[in-house]
Each structure stands twice: as structure tokens, then as C-alpha cells.
């Protein structure tokens, strides 16, 4: 009962998105083939009750656990569909998409990386923010160094790792440090958030500035410490349907699931904040 009602609502949204996509396509007319758009439109209308086919979702590495769960749920709700994920650094994924990788949906960890895709006109519509992520300090279990604030990380002798400023978690960390007027010299600028977390998990570093979701996913191997400056560096996660989507209808349905209350519940459980 409930599900069918929701589906109806989603169908309306879907149709709306399809129109929006159409408009977006015709707006940037020159290169894109309008037939693709017109072909997609009736498909969006007719398949409202019956979704099928496989889709490929490129998603930021931090979404791995929750998206995998959502993908299973989607396949359960829509028998005959299949969701394949490619998790990785948002930048690599964006580079892949602009390089022609076959993907239907892109969920990035920052608007900046999404902008790479939208900038190349590879998205089939404006991206929507579906979750936000906040920074947290990951310390060794039991917090032996008594880290309670971002300022504590600047103590000498403490080995701290940050993400490199070229990746979202690093940029966010710099923003938070700037907000607190702090200067922190880490032992390493890690290539991605998982590497930063691994250094703490292996006890090579005493602390790392990572996302809440990563601390949550790491379980008992690290301990999270929240800090107020993180509010200044909240990371928006945008999601978008891609222009080269092979299965736009199903892809849109998946995006809708992600943005639905049901999807949000899975995501918040993983430590994400609602947009």
C-alpha cells in the first residue's frame, strides 16, 4: 500500500525530472542529439510501473556501505533491475565520466567534483544535494592523547594526518582550520579519506581529520571526536543523472530512492547529515 503510493509520487517527480532534462538538453542544443531526449521522455512515462535493466552508479568511496545497501533494496523493490556500483575517489570518478566511462548516475563527495562533470555538460540535469557530511577527528581507541578539540591537534609530538587539500576531505579540513584560526602541520597529506583513516587504524598516526561517516564505518578501531569548527566545513554530496545514461528511467528511480526518506534513513544511519 504505502509503497505503491510512494511509487506514484516518485513517478510524478520522475516525469518532472525528465522534462527538466529535456529542457536542459535543448538549452545547450548544439552538440547533443535531441532525439535522445525525446526518446527518453515517453520511456519515462510508460515505465512508471515497471522498471527494468541495469544501471551503473559511480559513487564517492564514502558512500560505499550505504549505497550498497540501497542498491540491494532497489533491486528488491524492482525485480529485473540491477545496480552496479563503482566506488572511488570523486575526482577519479569524475575524470572517468568526462573520459567517457559508461555510467548512469554520479554521486560525488563535493560540489566541486560534480562541477567537473556538469562543467563538461556530462550531466543530464542539475545535480541535487542528497546528504551532507561533517568532519570529525578520528583518534586511537580510548583517545589516549585526550584530544577534545581541533586545537588539541596542533600540540607538538602528536602525529596527525590530513587529507590532501586537493581532495574534498582535505579542503574541508583546511576550511575548518581556517575557521578556527588554527595552523596545523600534519605528518602527511593523505590521498583520500580512507588512507587517512587507515593510518590511525594501524596506529601509525595519532589522529586524523576525516568524515563522521568514516569514523562510524571504522567501528571500534578508532574513536570519533566532534569539534565545532566542523560546522564551517560541511560537505554537500550532490547526485546527478548522467547524459550518457543507458537506462535513464531506472537511474532516475534509483536517485529518487536515495533522496527518499527511506534512503535518507540508511544514509543518516551511516553518519551522514540530511541536506
Amino acid at each position: 500500500m504505502i509503497r505503491s503510493a510512494r511509487r506514484t509520487r516518485r513517478t510524478v517527480q520522475l516525469a518532472g525530472a525528465g522534462v527538466a532534462a529535456l529542457l536542459a538538453l535543448s538549452a545547450c542544443s548544439s552538440s547533443s542529439d535531441p532525439s535522445t531526449g525525446s526518446g527518453a521522455s515517453p520511456a519515462a512515462g510508460s515505465s512508471s510501473s515497471k522498471l527494468s535493466g541495469n544501471i551503473t552508479v559511480f559513487a564517492a568511496a564514502s558512500l560505499k556501505e550505504s549505497f550498497t545497501a540501497l542498491g540491494k533494496e532497489f533491486e528488491r523493490q524492482h525485480p529485473g533491475t540491477g545496480v552496479t556500483f563503482s566506488f572511488g575517489g570523486s575526482d577519479s570518478l569524475a575524470a572517468g565520466i568526462t573520459g567517457g566511462a559508461p555510467a548512469d548516475v554520479f554521486a560525488a563527495a563535493s560540489p566541486k567534483t560534480m562541477a567537473i562533470v556538469t562543467g563538461r555538460k556530462d550531466a543530464a540535469g542539475p545535480p541535487a544535494t542528497f546528504v551532507r557530511n561533517q568532519l570529525e577527528i578520528a583518534t586511537l581507541p580510548g583517545n589516549p592523547h585526550k584530544v577534545s578539540s581541533l586545537k588539541d591537534l596542533t600540540r607538538s609530538g602528536l602525529k596527525v594526518v590530513l587529507c590532501d587539500r586537493t581532495v574534498p576531505c582535505g579542503a574541508a579540513a583546511q576550511k575548518a582550520l581556517a575557521a578556527g584560526g588554527l595552523k596545523l602541520t600534519p605528518v602527511s597529506y593523505e590521498q583520500d579519506v580512507k588512507s587517512a583513516l587507515t593510518k590511525v587504524e594501524l596506529k601509525e598516526a595519532d589522529a586524523a581529520v576525516v568524515y563522521r561517516t568514516d569514523v562510524r564505518a571504522a567501528g571500534d578501531t578508532v574513536e570519533g571526536v566532534e569539534f565545532p569548527e566542523s560546522a564551517k566545513a560541511v560537505n554537500d554530496y550532490p547526485i546527478a543523472l548522467l547524459k550518457n545514461a543507458q537506462n535513464a528511467t531506472t537511474a532516475k528511480a534509483f536517485i529518487d530512492l536515495v533522496r527518499s526518506p527511506e534512503g535518507q534513513k540508511v544514509l543518516t544511519a551511516a553518519g551522514f547529515l540530511k541536506p
Binding site: D91, D164, T166, S188, Y189, E190, Q191
Partner: peptide, 27 residues
């Protein structure tokens, strides 16, 4: 290298690391 020694300019950031990180936002 990046896994064992990390990435810090001048100390452990070798060219391949610099290339990789530059690729993130400035191909």
C-alpha cells in the same frame, strides 16, 4: 610510497605523488 610514507611536500611527496594529487583537481 604513499601508503607507507604518506605525502608531505619536501619530505615524502615524490613526483608520482605530486602528479597523482595534482590530477585530483588540476589535470
Amino acid at each position: 610510497t604513499i601508503t607507507f610514507a604518506g605525502n608531505f611536500p619536501g619530505r615524502t611527496q615524490t613526483m608520482p605523488l605530486a602528479v597523482y594529487l595534482a590530477l585530483q583537481n588540476d589535470p
